[in-house]
Design a binder for these strands. Structure first.
Lengths: 235, 235
DNA sequence: TCGGCAAAGTTGTCCGGACATATTCTAACG
DNA sequence: CGTTAGAATATGTCCGGACAACTTTGCCGA
């Protein structure tokens, strides 16, 4: 039954934004109980094709199942293979925070001014991994003294102290060269090739909670991920 | 009820690998109908905490909900921002396929020999994006004449022709330099910095369907992704 | 001892009903 | 004409039951 309904949606019998027949009408058409109809609609909702609202009805929100491949991880520390045993020591960045942003990074003018801090992420043995610069709303500045660079990350600390919640992370990698500042911090040449990794941590309303940039020397950069195919259960 | 059961699993009342009480026993303990019990177990199964098997019972497979953050995409072409308007022309690679594998890429000895093909991916305007080398089991060689480099990708073609299904993609990016072969193809210097992207397309039994490596000049490399937090529905 | 078969146990699917809750519509009232 | 209270409508949650499908177990016969 779910397959039949999906086929109908796919061929446009009900278009996106339109309402599906009510549960009772579907029961009558297919000659099944409400339980069976609800199960079919549940599958469609889980596949992201319809949205159900109590009292209002069932609306089509997509005509093809989205998200065929997914990459999932327990925590953001798995985003890069930052082993848990790395340290980051942060100091205030010199200069205008907005001027320090690399090309490609736009700091949306938030409710208040931005604050920039920076430092080198190292293994416990002391080897440099990257040079990181973090921008955060100045309202969150009070967490910085608490940050020891150990287990917790800056965004995690902000989430706990300020009752905000990161809902989405946008990440971009580009090829670049080390800028003078990062080259100095890493003990390398400013012209050395590097991978620049930009990240924006956004809350549910897409307001930035934290923005970061990290420069990785190209010869030590590594990133891996596994994507699993999602067989839109039940259909 | 689902929350209660999850709490019990989290505190180790039932350990990973053990069986939960049967539906009937849970009904008796909570004083609810089987319908309600099944709904709670369904939520746990959806969260990835238990696995249910008809006739056998319900087994604990994790004590904390996995996958807090997920990255999902409609198709693998979104893996890299290969706009749809790129072309890849492949020719057989010279030499022993196994010898051509870059460091870090292991070609598992499959049921038969490997075949290697290679080429340059370009925009329709002709600009070079990367140099790609693809290894595939020689049994799939017959699809190569069909590959025009247009809309379809090689793995898609193999899926359609040979009734195999890619279940998982493992991807790794590392900093590197262009090798002599790729430098020649791209018209650059072999010492130029590059990002080497290795991908393995695996079927459900983790057998490789296709393996690829692509060398991207660092100054034109770009990759972006968005991760969404997943609030383990219903709990 | 081993294989096969039946029985018991467990989850999957389906039925029909009842009430709760959220939304939308409508008609009466100010 | 605008507002509001209530009715109608829709989905959410729950009950109790029946049978099907699959797995495991144990008994029995070869």
């Amino acid at each position: 039954m779910a397959r039949t309904l999906q086929a109908r949606i796919a061929e446009g019998l009900w278009k996106i934004g339109e309402a599906l027949p009510t549960e009772q009408e579907l029961c009558a058409e297919f000659g099944v109980s409400r339980h069976t109809t609800r199960e079919a609609l549940r599958v469609l909702a889980e596949a992201g094709l319809v949205r159900r609202r109590q009292g209002s009805g069932t609306e089509v929100i997509a005509d093809t199942p989205p998200a065929l491949y997914r990459h999932q991880m327990r925590s953001l520390s798995e985003l890069l293979d930052y082993a848990a045993d790395t340290r980051l020591e942060l100091v205030p960045a010199e200069g205008d925070p907005l001027e320090l942003a690399p090309e490609g990074l736009t700091l949306a003018p938030g409710p208040g001014p931005w604050l920039a801090v920076e430092g080198v992420r190292r293994t416990l043995a002391g080897g440099a991994i990257n040079f990181t610069r973090i921008w955060l709303p100045a309202a969150y500045a009070s967490i910085l003294p608490e940050f020891e660079g150990g287990a917790r990350s800056v965004y995690d600390l902000i989430e706990r102290r300020f009752r905000v919640r990161v809902a989405e992370v946008a990440q971009e990698m580009t090829g670049a060269t080390l800028c003078p500042r990062s080259a100095r911090a890493l003990g390398r040449d400013a012209a050395d090739p590097a991978i620049l990794l930009l990240r924006s941590y956004l809350d549910a309303e897409a307001r930035p909670v934290l923005v970061s940039a990290s420069w990785h020397p190209a010869d030590t950069f590594s990133y891996s991920m596994r994507l699993q195919r999602d067989d839109t259960a039940g259909m």
